[in-house]
C-alpha cells in the first residue's frame, strides 16, 4: 500500500503524517495524533461526536477522507484551551450543567464554536440548527443551548 503524505495544521501546529489513502480524518486525529477528544460514536456521520472544525466549518471527521485535509486548518477540542484556561464555551458548558456523560461534549462544543465563530448573536433556532447533527442522549439540550447563549454573550462582550 502506498502511504500518502498528509500535511495539515492541527490546533495551530503544522503536522505531517504518512497515512493510508483510505483513512478517515478521525483515524488520523484520534489514533495517529492521539487526539482522543475526537470521539467515535457511530463512524457514519450520524451522531456528531467526532465533530471538528476544518477550514472554519464543522464536519464529521469520521466520514471525511484524511487526504481531504491536505493543507487544511483543523481545530479539535484539544486546541480550545491552549494554555489560556478554558474557552468560554467550555466554561459555560460546565457552569450551565450542559455536560452529563461527556461523550458528546467535545463534538457539541466544536459545533457550537463553529457557530459562534461566525455569529455571536445566534437565535435559539440557529443554535438548534447548528447542533442538530450532534446527538446527545443525556441532557434534552436545554442546558446545552443555554450554555451556547451564555458563551455568545461572554464572547460578544469580550470583543
Amino acid at each position: 500500500m502506498n502511504k500518502k503524505t498528509l500535511t495539515m495544521v492541527v490546533n495551530g501546529k503544522t503536522v505531517e503524517k504518512m497515512v493510508e489513502p483510505g483513512d478517515t480524518l478521525l483515524d488520523v486525529l484520534r489514533e495517529e495524533l492521539g487526539l482522543k477528544g475526537v470521539k467515535k460514536g457511530c463512524g457514519k456521520g450520524e451522531c456528531g461526536a467526532c465533530t471538528i472544525i476544518m477550514n472554519g466549518k464543522a464536519v464529521n471527521s469520521c466520514i471525511v477522507p484524511a487526504m481531504q485535509a491536505v493543507g487544511a486548518e483543523i481545530q479539535t477540542i484539544e486546541g480550545l484551551s491552549n494554555g489560556n484556561g478554558l474557552h468560554p464555551l467550555q466554561q459555560t458548558f460546565i457552569d450551565c450543567g450542559a455536560i452529563q456523560c461527556g461523550f458528546c461534549t467535545p463534538g457539541m462544543i466544536m459545533s457550537s464554536k463553529a457557530l459562534l465563530d461566525k455569529n455571536l448573536k445566534p437565535t435559539k433556532e440557529e443554535i438548534k440548527q447548528a447542533l442538530a447533527g450532534n446527538v446527545c442522549r443525556c441532557t434534552g439540550f436545554v442546558k446545552i443551548e443555554e450554555a451556547v447563549e451564555k458563551a455568545a454573550e461572554i464572547l460578544k462582550n469580550g470583543k
Binding site: 477528544g37 467550555q90 455536560i99
Partner: peptide
C-alpha cells in the same frame, strides 16, 4: 446548591476518560 460538576473540566477539554480511549 447549584455547584459545578466535579467531572466537568475533564469532559469539557476532551480528556481521554472513557474505555474506548
Amino acid at each position: 446548591k447549584r455547584l459545578p460538576r466535579y467531572d466537568g473540566t475533564q469532559k469539557a477539554v476532551g480528556a481521554p476518560c472513557f474505555t474506548s480511549d
